[in-house]
């Protein structure tokens, strides 16, 4: 498997796991607030959440592996966020998780999407930051070795 495709697959799986966790959490809170006492939860919701997390994870492809400008990257990030909103709100309507005319349900869903999006973005940034710290450690070793070789 090519290096790029391998990295993409790992990123997709990681995003899928994080989005699934976030969706379950939001679903639990949402259910407690809006559907408490009702028989909203059945077995299908689990499959629906998994499918939703997978389709949301596909949004990673808004960020191409090829080189693009910072401006284009920022635009793609915005597009990615819109895509997730469309997918989640569309699923909410399609699967009957929310009453489209209930503004509170709609608002709670939008807040839930924003929260999961921000948490996932933060975790990815933290992983990226850790990666850069490892790179800096290795860079120092590389430069020290280079200096040592020249001094010899």
């Amino acid at each position: 498997m090519r290096e790029g495709a391998k990295k993409r697959t790992v990123e997709l799986l990681l995003t899928f796991c994080m989005v699934t966790t976030g969706s379950v959490f939001v679903c639990a809170v949402y259910n407690k607030i809006f559907w408490s006492g009702n028989t909203f939860l059945d077995g299908d919701i689990l499959w629906q959440l998994l499918a939703l997390a997978f389709v949301c994870s596909l949004g990673n492809f808004f960020h191409p592996y090829r080189e693009i400008s910072r401006r284009r990257e920022a635009f793609n990030k915005g597009l990615h966020y819109v895509y997730i909103n469309v997918v989640v709100l569309g699923s909410g309507y399609w699967f009957g998780w929310m009453d489209i005319e209930n503004i509170f349900m709609l608002a709670a869903m939008v807040v839930g999407i924003l929260a999961v999006f921000m948490v996932v973005s933060f975790v990815i940034w933290r992983l990226h930051k850790r990666e850069s710290e490892n790179l800096n450690r290795k860079l120092s070793e590389y430069q020290a070795e280079s200096e040592r070789r020249m001094a010899k």
Binding site: E11, H63, I68, R70, E73, A74, N76, K77, W125, H128, K129, E131, S132, L135, N136, L139, Y142, Q143, S146
Partner: peptide
Amino acid sequence: NLAKVKQFAPDFGGRF
């Protein structure tokens, strides 16, 4: 030139 790099920092969209 890697010998002239002070440090790497995370950048937007998975870049450094």
